[in-house]
Structures are given as C-alpha cells and as structure tokens.
Design a binder for these strands. Structure first.
Lengths: 323, 323
DNA sequence: ATTATTAGTTGACGTTGTCAACTATCATGG
DNA sequence: CCATGATAGTTGACAACGTCAACTAATAAT
C-alpha cells in the first residue's frame, strides 16, 4: 500500500502547460468526435437536449421529478417543461401525481421505452461503428484509457456507475509488468525511492511469473472499466506460508475500500488453498498500509532498519495465522 | 518489431458491448465536462460556435477563406457569414481581396488577436483549474491516457498536431516495465505467444535495470503527448558488442517511421559509445521488423529453429559492424 | 392567517441554426 | 465572345433552441 504521502508530495503542483494544452486539444477533438454540435441527435428528429433528457428519464427510476432532471442536467425550467410536454404529447411518458400535489412524477410508457430503445440501439450501433477496426486488445486499451481519463478528471459518476464500480479479477498477460511499472512510478513520486525499488518490483513480478504455481499462487487486479486501480500478489514461500506482495492502490482510487478488498481476496484464497500462515514485508512509513494489515488481523513480528531505497527506514515483517 | 500479423489477427472483431458502453459513458461524461452545452462560451458573450470559429481563425494562417473555415467546421454558409460579419463589426478581423475577387480572405487585427488572447487565456486558466489537484505523475498519466484515446479513436489531428508529432526520449522510472507489459500483450494478441515470452521480457527489462551501465547502455521511448508509441533497448553484451533488444512499435503508431527512428537512435548511440558491433535476436516471422533491420544495414548471420513460445519458429541473429 | 418557498407552466423574446434565393465573380466550352 | 454552370459570400424568412420573468397551485414556516 502506498499512502501517507507527506504534505509536500500532494501539494497541488500548478498544472504544466503541456498538460493543459493536451487536455484542450483533447476537448476539441472529442467535441468533434462526439458530434455534440449536430443539432439533430442521430437524425431522430429531436435535439441533443431532448435526447439527453429522454436518456435520463429512461435510465433513472420511474417516477422521476422534472426538477430532479432539470437540476441534474442544468436545464432551464421552462425549456425542460416544454420538452417533457412534448414527450407526453407523443405518448412516450405518463405523468402521475406525487404525494406532493405540485409534483408530476414522470414514467416511461411502453411506447416511450420502445422509442428510447430504438434511439439507444441506433446510438450503440453508431458508436460501435466508430471502433470496429479495433481488435480486442485495442478495445481493452481504449477502455483502460477512457477509465483513466475519467478518474483523473474526477468524474463523480465514474465511481458509482451501473456499468462500473470496481471489481477484482485474476491477473492476465501483461498485468504484472504493468503493476511493476505503476508501483515504480508511484513510489518514485511519493517517496523518491528510485531504481532499487524498481528493480525489486521487476524481480518480484518476473519471478512470480516464471515460477507461477496455479492453485497455490495468484495475483489480482482491481479495475474499473478496464483501468487498473490496484493489485496484489500471493506467492508461495514454502512451509505452507503464503506471502502477500506488491499491494498497491492507485491514488485516484483510494478510500473506496479497494486495499482491504484485495487483502481479503488474497487471504481468502490462501486459506482455501490450505496455507498455514500469511506473511508480508512492508515499510514502517507506509502507515496507511500498515493499518490495513493490522485491521485484517496481521501481526507485526519483526523489524529491521535498512536503507535499500535511499532513505533510512525500517522494514517490517507481519504474519497472520490462517487456521 | 511486431508486425506482419496474419489476416486473422487484424480481422475487425465486432466491438464488445462493454467497450461500446464504456465509450458512450465517456462521451456523456466528457460532454458535461467540456461544457459544450453551455450556450455562452466562458462568459465571453459569444456562443460556442463563434468561439470555435475565432479559434480556427486565430490558429490558422492569416488570410483564410470563409469557405475553408466553414468546411472544416461543418458550418452553414449563412451562419458562418453572419458570425464573421460580427467579428468584422467588432474590429477583430479585417477582410481583404483575394486573387479571386469573390474571396474575402480573413485576417485577425491586433484587436482581434488581443480579444482571442484574452479568451484563450481564460480557457487555459479554466482548464488548468480543473486539474490543479493532479501532481506531476498524474498529469503524465492523464496526457498518456488522452493521447491513447485519441490515437485509438483515430483522431487524424493527433498525428500532425503542432504540440505533437512523436518524439524519442530516454527511459524513465517505470518505463521499462511498461514496455514489458505492452510487448507481452502485443505478442499475445498478434501471435499467441504466452507466458514464456512475458517472462523473457520481464527478465530482460529487469536485468537491464539492475545492471544498467550509464553511457554504455540506454533505452528509448517513442511517445506522443505522453503516450508510449514504441521503445527499444541497447544492452552491452561485452567485447564491444551492443545488443538491440525489445524493439516494438504500437499498432496505432505504425507506418510513421518510428521503428526506423528507434533503430537509428540505438545504432547512433552505440556508435558514439564506441561499440564495435551491434547484434540482435529476432524471429523469422517478424518480417516487418526484419525488413527494418535489413534496411538499417544489419545482416543475418545465424538461424536456429526453436519452439520457446509455443509455435515452431526460427530465431535469427543479425549483426551490424559499426566501424 | 400571512408569508415565503417550491413544482411546474406559460408567454414574450432573443439567439442559433437552416434553407433557399440572391449577387458577384470565375471557369469552361462551343 | 457568350452561354452555362460553378463558386464565394450575403441576405431574408423561418424554425428550433434556450432564457427570463410572470404566473398558478400547492406546500411549509411562523
């Protein structure tokens, strides 16, 4: 786990001009790409705003209030009112009465669902058509990059979305090297640990892959929409002891309980695999990680000062009995 | 180098539903994020369209024709005409006469440049404000992800942009593990070489890092806006022989001459460092890479059949005398 | 009971964007 | 050279989009 950065580490650096330029260029690109400028949404005969509104109605709970939609989309009350009235006239929605008689809860009719489904299918096909030439691997890359952008730009939806939330899966080809890369950069940025740490991470992941014992060992990746949020390894160190290694959670994903979930996944697997004990090494300055280990039941059994990564610190060994 | 995929490998797989869903979700997010819906661009008193038009005028050559702008932006002739007339009335542009008397080439006046600069600064500040909380590393991640998205979604601008084009730089922390990850996934997707290859890549990069000899060894990353497009390593194998290792170019970046540039960089460095000879191992089925090596002056000196990565293939040793 | 607030509607109105008609110029081919 | 057609840009009519403020009806606060 890689937390407890010192204040200096998280102090908001003023964004670099290149970053700002890149983001602006991307914004221009995407505006064109998404075709937001086009007035008629997918030739459906309604404007983009109406289409977005219909989308919100269709996705949300039946019985939404106009005010909630308006607020969510930043729409003018009058404008929204007219669009909604239009939907009603077309028979797409029905409006009832709420407990509050001023409210007129909106629900899609069967007809409305059909209309939305038609538009939705059209959009989906259109979107799909724009990425047909991407193979499976490139699609994964795309999803990861999209997820990364959303996470970094702070999309509040990204964390709660139906499609999304995060999940944990076993590692696949290329994952472990990516873990090593992320960790190397993360520790460098947060603690200034340099190449020594990077080499160690490379050695750990490569050795893990080379000697991988299916059923006895495993690595897990926490991800959201294909973007890696964290990872952990379980290695067999003999004598029925499993070592938890390379736990980390990306900064953008902290506070979601991912670290704990990864530890639980790891410990659960080890227990099922019949290990007698879990073991891990960590550093005293990784206090957030230490808290996690402690709360998962690990106990500190050994400490040793060293300066493997430049600065002086204390390595710690923690164990957890499994039976 | 990783080319010459068989037809089966590049056959356009039908996009997976998750990918389409992720892209659509991203589109919704970004539409909101970029605020394209807002009618007045940055409270500048003009609409988004006018703002975009002004941007195009300011960015392009002086003396642009309205028709060119219109066509580029997909604008209605009448609409554009009125907006441009508005700019002229405000004194932001001056219109001359072209060789063709129908044309009225547009040029920004000093006043127009000032007005644009003001808006541009505002936009830049606004954009910067949205990413202030990102540290340097996260900004790099963001740029890489943005570049990746643009490349994968096929932004024609992405390749030619002033900011961009691609460039080659020495490796930094975390780069080599990323190279290993990308290569593992690439070879897996294109040739089905599995874990054996992945382990090899991990071993090569880790060993390189562990025994790195500054001045004698180096690795280079080709990138565009922070997104890795390719890489190559130069390793010292003794007796004044330098080995070129792990050359690869991402699919989205092929055909730009990046492979050749990486080889040249590598060979140039080796020559300057005083190596006597360059050497490399490759596989017979990587015909695109072989062509590159050949055109760079390498000569095939040894072949050996093996099946290290599953399928039967022939490993090849190529050398290049440097003096 | 008075006052303020909230959900939603309606009318007036300005802005944005579309379409077609229009002027002025240029290009081409007999 | 003239007829024809295309092109650059303008203009007017008009529909759609969006904003603002006034309005109704119901609820909440005191």
């Amino acid at each position: 786990m890689t937390d407890d950065r010192t204040p200096a580490d998280i102090s908001p650096t003023r964004p670099a001009p290149e970053t700002v330029a890149a983001l602006r260029a991307f914004n221009r690109f995407h505006t064109r790409f998404a075709g937001v400028l086009q007035p008629s949404y997918m030739d459906s005969g309604m404007g983009v705003t109406a289409a977005r509104l219909l989308y919100e109605i269709a996705q949300g709970q039946a019985g939404v209030l106009a005010s909630s939609l308006r607020e969510r989309m930043g729409l003018d009350a009058g404008h929204a009112s007219r669009i909604i009235a239009g939907f009603e006239k077309r028979g797409w929605i029905a409006r009832g009465r709420g407990s509050d008689a001023r409210q007129r809860p909106i629900a899609l009719t069967a007809q409305g669902r059909a209309a939305f489904a038609a538009i939705d299918a059209r959009t989906r096909a259109d979107t799909a058509a724009r990425i047909v030439e991407l193979d499976r691997g490139q699609q994964d890359d795309l999803m990861a990059a999209l997820g990364q952008v959303r996470a970094l730009l702070g999309d509040p939806m990204a964390s709660e979305e139906a499609s999304g939330g995060w999940s944990i899966r076993p590692f696949r080809i290329g994952d472990l090297a990516l873990v090593a890369s992320r960790q190397a950069r993360l520790y460098e940025a947060e603690y200034g640990w340099g190449r020594a740490m990077e080499v160690m991470q490379g050695e750990i992941t490569t050795a893990f892959l080379r000697d991988f014992k299916p059923g006895r060992e495993q690595a897990w990746i926490a991800e959201r929409d294909g973007a890696m949020l964290g990872a952990v390894l379980l290695a067999d160190v003999g004598e029925d002891v499993g070592q938890l290694r390379l736990l980390h959670v990306e900064r953008v994903a902290r506070g979601l309980g991912i670290g704990r979930a990864l530890i639980d996944q790891c410990v659960g697997f080890a227990r099922d695999a019949g290990y007698r004990q879990m073991m891990l090494w960590t550093q005293n300055i990784l206090t957030q990680a230490r808290r996690l280990y402690e709360s998962a039941g690990f106990q500190l059994v050994e400490r040793e000062a060293h300066s493997l990564f430049g600065a002086e610190m204390t390595g710690e060994r923690w164990i957890l009995a499994l039976h």
